[in-house]
């Protein structure tokens, strides 16, 4: 199937989601399987330019303290804390030959930044192109915060029209202590200087959403 076409039972919702997400400069792709998603992610990491090995901002003149943090990051690192163990192992096997490290220790050791964080979204909200990710696990939370690129896999069966359609599911999660739930729409952004849009102020500079046909 050519890229850009829909394969879901709810083509309208998928279309709406895609349009809304692309409007906030998310990159949206279709994938047929989880393995295709992993292959996409490894390719993406592989093609990151060498100069981007440096954590974002490290090329700028910095104070000594901030510059010291930059020196701690030397190789390409990905993290995928939300993947089921078997899938994580397959992913790791894809990474290794390319010299990419798949972090399995605490992500707090990588606050200088990781190249790509991979997550599987719990839900999608079509109206706003939003990912809903239960981020109660600290590793999962950090993977979506300190990565330069966030790749999220969204199973199309989890797509809803509006946030209101998710009220029962979300309310249930909120009552399971301790819960940390994230709505993520596009990359981290600011317009605090002269109202000029700048992407990637604290969080990811890019958000890739892989729509997974799972129905």
């Amino acid at each position: 199937m050519p890229p850009g076409t829909d394969r879901g039972r709810h083509p309208a919702a998928a279309q709406t989601f895609r349009r809304a997400a692309e409007k906030v400069s998310a990159i949206v792709r279709d994938v047929a399987s989880l393995d295709e998603a992993l292959a996409y992610t490894v390719r993406l990491c592989d093609t990151k330019e060498a100069c981007e090995l440096l954590a974002t901002g490290c090329a700028e003149p910095l104070s000594p303290g901030a510059a010291a943090l930059c020196e701690r990051k030397q190789t390409k690192i990905m993290a995928a804390p939300g993947l089921p163990p078997e899938l994580w192992t397959r992913f790791e096997e894809l990474c290794r030959p390319r010299g990419i490290t798949l972090a399995d220790g605490p992500l707090r050791d990588h606050l200088a930044g990781i190249d790509i964080g991979v997550t599987i979204a719990d839900y999608g909200i079509a109206e706003t192109g939003t990912l809903v990710i239960d981020s109660s696990s600290e590793a999962l939370r950090l993977a979506t915060m300190i990565s330069e690129i966030h790749v999220a896999i969204l199973p199309l069966s989890r797509l809803r029209e509006t946030a209101h359609d998710l009220e029962p599911e979300l309310t249930a999660r909120m009552q399971t202590p301790a819960n940390y739930l994230a709505f993520i729409t596009g990359a981290s952004r600011t317009a605090d200087i002269e109202r000029v849009l700048a992407i990637g102020v604290h969080g990811p500079l890019e958000l890739h959403i892989l729509l997974l046909e799972d129905r």
């Binding site: 707090r108 109660s136 696990s137 600290e138 940390y180 993520i184 729409t185 596009g186 981290s188």
Partner: peptide
């Protein structure tokens, strides 16, 4: 700001998992 939604909306229900130094809870 004329945005359909902001980049992040975060819902926190309780002191979430904490893996920082000291081995203490959040």
């Amino acid at each position: 700001t004329g945005q359909a939604i902001t980049s992040y909306v975060t819902w926190i229900s309780g002191p979430a998992e904490y893996g920082g130094p000291g081995g203490t809870a959040k």
